[in-house]
Design a protein around this nucleic acid. Sequence first.
DNA 1: AAGTGTTCCAAAACCGGTTTCGGAAGTCAA
DNA 2: TTGACTTCCGAAACCGGTTTTGGAACACTT
Lengths: 368, 368
Amino acid sequence: MSRLRGSVTIDDVARHVGVAKGTVSRVLNNYTDISDSTRKRILKAVQDLGYQPSATARNLKRGRQDTLGIIIPVGHGNGADPFLAEFIDGIARALDELGLDLLVTTAHSRDHVIQTLKRLIARRKVDGFIVTRTEVDDPRIAYLNELNFPFVAHGRTGDPSGYAWFDIDNEATFADGVRHLYSLGHERIGFVGGSLDLNFARQRREGYRQGLEALGVRHDPDLETIQTISEEGGLAGAEALLSQAAPPTAMLCATDALAIGVVQFCRKLGLKAGSDVTVIGYDGLPVGEYLDPPLTTYSQSAQEAGGRVARMLIDLLDGKEPQTLQALAKARLIRRASDGAPSMTSDALANVLRDRLNQQPPSGSKGE
Amino acid sequence: MSRLRGSVTIDDVARHVGVAKGTVSRVLNNYTDISDSTRKRILKAVQDLGYQPSATARNLKRGRQDTLGIIIPVGHGNGADPFLAEFIDGIARALDELGLDLLVTTAHSRDHVIQTLKRLIARRKVDGFIVTRTEVDDPRIAYLNELNFPFVAHGRTGDPSGYAWFDIDNEATFADGVRHLYSLGHERIGFVGGSLDLNFARQRREGYRQGLEALGVRHDPDLETIQTISEEGGLAGAEALLSQAAPPTAMLCATDALAIGVVQFCRKLGLKAGSDVTVIGYDGLPVGEYLDPPLTTYSQSAQEAGGRVARMLIDLLDGKEPQTLQALAKARLIRRASDGAPSMTSDALANVLRDRLNQQPPSGSKGE
DNA sequence: AAGTGTTCCAAAACCGGTTTCGGAAGTCAA
DNA sequence: TTGACTTCCGAAACCGGTTTTGGAACACTT
């Protein structure tokens, strides 16, 4: 009969038992107005025939898809983010328990993201979205809010009211970073930050400043630098901070990518991170473990975050108010080997650097 | 009227124009039996009302979902694979052009994979699957073949006939690796492989052997070791090969994870990869760039592979025969800095190693 | 015996599209 | 003028579920 491979429909079950298909449906949806004997006969038939309802047909009537969407932004060709891979893993695990699924799409520009959002919503392919890498002024969030379409953000925007989000307490974490460095004995603590368009970058700088203030250390603007978030940015940032008359003995970096660049710059100058100078990153990237020395960094569990965000979205779809779905978590310090007590004062460091910066070869030639 | 936010249905459009909804549908599906004037009026109304057909309703009738599925296997808690992140990116890009979407699920055990497969098929949520990390005897492929459900594998199984796949020519690539090492001057070339349950691991060892044979170099079983694919496996593999009387001066590794372990073991012994000993990996992991020295490796573009596999699956759904959809690609050698001409003979190396292996401290303490 | 509830389920409407069927109107040749 | 074809489109069936409606059968009052 049915030309689709083995697909058993509700009609097949109904016919097999000799009842109306509505009755089968009611049994499967736990209505109470079915006699025990009929219920049993139907359940047996469902078993025997291996019937599973078609998600499509059910969704058409119900108006739900049992599918959540995530749109991952990807740069031009430059691979995907390992954080996102784990994040998605966390989401998928959480959804699996509830029989929901995750639709993953990538978008390569700001316009493309909105366009994809629009398509997925109009075509009704998903019930809600998970938005990652929020910006201070995020067009996706504006769009979804306007449509009143359910979503949860991983990370906040400039105005974090009125929608559901889960975020790391960047301020507290970076203030903690400053405290940690200070307790190691560092007094000149630098900060290598990222573009202030990104909300988290702004918050991390704020946390750095708050940390200093809490300790009563004067905030020196020369110890702060803003770079693009990349290894190159880290190189530039380290150069900017270290070539000063009174360089920092420790550098707190907004991301691991920046920290990796900083460590590289230090190595080029023959400085060893962890003893000559201290570097701390943020992200807990696996790459950090293989660095020389292994990078000390703050980390949140991406998988945990994914699960958390997914559960929040489900709550939202169940009717909870977005305002009640806002949560902060703190990142954990993973001490590896790029931090330690200062081996020399800022002045001594400046002396060492003065010579080396001059004789520094133009490029990273390895020598024999 | 409609209680769903702004959702315009085909009926709205039909009413607005004053035609039957079937007519609207025919216009949108490019039927030819519609007069130009009617077509224009309808298209205008579609524009004006911002109508987009509901994927759900369309799928119900069509029996297609315009959605492909991928199930990523994840170990217990130990993060996701960066390769897969890029692979998914490649798939998503290819699908985006055609308006298809990708459903991503994770599974944490063999049974769970089959179970998820079953659910997704029975519920008719996807039209086809992409299967990654194939095993020599892969239950997923057996299951899908049995059901005659469309899928494309990334990687082959022991019996690669009868289904669509895309794979790297592991044999050719590893034979090429041997040739490369030989041309650098290495004569004792080792191989650190992975569990032979994994099909690619088997093929890579085969390629290694073929490479030797093609050069007329005698195959020495002592130069081959099989380890679990991980950094630890690499450490163990390096120890096994290097502690012999006639150690290899170069080691070809089945994956980057193994190669990373090998490099680490060498470093612990004070050997520098790229000069004292040569190490080549496979995977092109970004991590490799940050290694000291940066790892020379073979790589396929994960993104490209994803796109390729996605397009194959689409062809399959369009009715192409699976047998015509089988393709091999060759990996590219990315020369970084862990390979080079041998700086000493196997004998000399053995001498150096003899001392160092004895005075080797039990654990990886860094010293000052 | 008639009226009033329950209990249980069949039948039909509905979700929003696609596709089939058939017929009205117009065109053209005979 | 009539018959045969086209052209174009309305009406209805259909996909496979869920939900509403309504009524048969039975038990229980009064």
